[in-house]
Design a protein around this nucleic acid. Sequence first.
DNA 1: AACCGGGTCAACCGCTAGTAT
DNA 2: GATACTAGCGGTTGACCCGGT
Length: 216
Amino acid sequence: MEGSSGVRKGAWSRFEDELLKACVRLYGEGKWHLVPQRAGLKRCRKSCRLRWLNYLKPNIKRGNFSEDEVDLIVRLHKLLGNRWSLIAGRLPGRTSNDVKNYWNTYTRRKSHSHNKDNNVKQHDETTVGKTSTYDVNYKPHQVIKPVPRPLSKTCPKLLQAKIIHSSKVGVSEEGATSSSSSGNWWETFLDENEDNFGAFEFWGEEFGSIACDFLN
DNA sequence: AACCGGGTCAACCGCTAGTAT
DNA sequence: GATACTAGCGGTTGACCCGGT
């Protein structure tokens, strides 16, 4: 299976996996455009990156989603919409592809059962997703799509919150660690923690109120 | 045993955002 | 500011598997 440009497509062989793993071990993640050359693979950079992120990367969790994970996915999807990478970021060991695939089958299952039985008044408590679109009490939810905001580095809110980070090391411009001692502020962004309501407000009054509603 | 349909998951494609020059 | 290039994302597709008939 090789394209006209000499680039292989389709399923990865064990040998290719080993080459890719060895390459990442040697050079680290990133610079994906160099990976095919370095690893001696006839794959495009996208293919290499995807294979690594979705399959070869250590700590990837496989198998069924737990109830907690499903619940989190439902809640996060309600808040973020189809931002699979953001959602996956909150689920250790899960990839955006996993989450997306799960959601697609999950919603398909839901719509299937919905079509089968339009008269269902009570949502089956045993099924996953307590907030399915087909709940009797379902209200169309408002998906929050982060809007780019022109923020000055001297923005008082930013300075106050000390969340101006270097994109690489997660350290404030002042060289101190951020207010979130355990790393990046977004890692705890959705925690049910009062501190975060300030963060919501930071993105604007509207976002803050929606997010608070969501968490309540 | 053969066929069919649905579910699952890996992979590809097209697009946008970010960065370098 | 314009352009080129790279990284990353979400949508979609297709192969494979499995259970039912």
